[in-house]
Amino acid sequence: MVLPLVYAIYESVTGIQRSGAFGQGGSSPVFVGLDNYITALGASAFVASLGRVLLFAVVQVPVMIILATALALLLDAASAWGVRFFRSAYFLPYGVPGVIASILWGFLYTPGLSPLVNFGSALGLNLDFLGGGSILWSIANIVTWQYAGYNMLVIVAQLKSIDADLFEAASIDGANAWQVITRIKLPLIRPAIVLTTVFTIIGTIQLFAEPLVLKPLSSAITSSFTPNLSAYNEAFANNNYNLAAAESVLLALVACAFSFGFLKLVTRGGSPS
C-alpha cells in the first residue's frame, strides 16, 4: 500500500515541483516588486505579441479542428479507397519536430528556392509568404500541417468507439449519411473535439519555435513576435530574467484562463467524457 502511494506522492511532488518552478518564477519578481508585471503589461510590444497569438488562436484553432474533424469523418465514412494509407499520410507530419517542420516550410516559403513561389509567379501570382501581412498565416499553416493529422487521429479513435448498434438502428430508421453524421457521430465525438481544442489552444499560445526559425527569413518577425519569443529574448539577449519570468507567468495564466474558459463554456451544455 505504501510504495505506490510514495510513487504517487513522488509523482505529484514532481508535478508540484514544476508548478514550484513556476511559482519560483512568479515569486521572485514579487520580491523585486510587482514592477516586472507592470513593465511587461506596459510594454506595447509584449501586449501586441499577446494580441497576436490570440488572433492566431482565434483563426487557427477552428480551422485546425474543423479540418481534423472533416478528415476524420471522411476516413470513417470508409467509402473511400486506401483509408489506411490516407490516415498514415495525415498523421506523418506529427513525427516531424516543430523546428524541422519550420525549416522545411521556411524553404518552401523562400523565393528562389520554393517551387510554390515559382509556380505562383508562373501563374502571374506574386506569392509573398514571408511579408508582414502573411507571415502569421504562413506560421499557422506550419502548425496546421503538423498537428491536424494528430487531432484527426484522436477523433477517429473516438469515432471507432461508437457502438455499431447505433448505426444499425439509424439505418433501420432510414437515416441518411448526413443525419448519421450530425445526429450520431458529431454529438458522440464531442469529448474528443473538446480535448483536441484545449490542447490546440495551449499549443498555439506558446508559439515559439516556428517564428524563431523563420525569423532570419522574414523581416516581419520581430524579437517580440510572440510572448514566448519575447520572454526568451528578455532572458538571453537582455539578461532580464525577472521580466522574462513575469512574461512566462502571464503566458501560463492566459493559457490556463483560455483552456479553462473553453472547458467551462462547453461543459455548460453537457459534461465531456
Binding site: A8, E11, S12, G15, I16, R18, S19, A21, F22, Q24, G25, G26, S28, V198, I202, G203, I205, Q206, F208, N228, A231, Y232, A235, Y241, A244, A245, S248, V249, L251, A252, A255, C256, S259, F260
Partner: peptide, 24 residues
C-alpha cells in the same frame, strides 16, 4: 486535490515553464 493539480499541470504550457526551470 492532487489530481486537479496534475490536471492543471496538463494545462500549463511547457514553454512557459522552461524559463523558470532554467532559473531553478
Amino acid at each position: 486535490v492532487w489530481f486537479n493539480i496534475i490536471l492543471a499541470g496538463v494545462m500549463i504550457p511547457g514553454t512557459a515553464l522552461a524559463l523558470p526551470l532554467f532559473l531553478l
